[in-house]
Design a protein around this nucleic acid. Structure first.
Length: 109
DNA sequence: CGATTGACCGAAG
DNA sequence: CCTTCGGCCAATC
């Protein structure tokens, strides 16, 4: 049961390495993995990550800091609550001070 | 097997 | 400044 191989696994691994109270973007992960132009595939990997509790998908947002994936969190504000629970303030589906909270694996790692 | 979509990003008009 | 288009990879129809 691993049709995608280790690609998705790498994505999950990076997301797991995201520090507490920080957020990253799909493109940042894609760039770190070498699939810079395939940020969409990273999004697909997240789609598979629904059953993964160890995957803080709520810390993954798009490059504008928009909680684009919040619709996939069960149709609730769980994603925003999780973020605010970590001290990340969310205003209208957008991470407040996103630039300061942005964690780039290719830069920090 | 061909066409469409998707939790994106970047450039161009 | 805002809108539109293209690209890139994988999964689903």
């Amino acid at each position: 049961m691993d049709p995608q191989g280790d690609f998705f696994e790498r994505v999950y691994e990076v997301v797991r390495q995201v520090p507490y109270g920080r957020v990253t973007s799909y493109g940042a992960i894609a760039r770190y993995l070498g699939t810079a132009r395939s940020a969409r595939v990273v999004g697909w990997a997240m789609n598979q990550s629904h059953g993964l509790e160890d995957l803080p998908a709520h810390r993954v947002v798009n490059r504008m800091g928009l909680l684009t994936g919040k619709h996939h969190f069960g149709g609730t504000r769980l994603m925003e609550q999780l973020l605010e629970n970590e001290g990340v303030r969310v205003s209208d589906n957008r991470v407040v001070d996103f630039e300061a909270l942005f964690w780039d694996p290719a830069r920090e790692l």
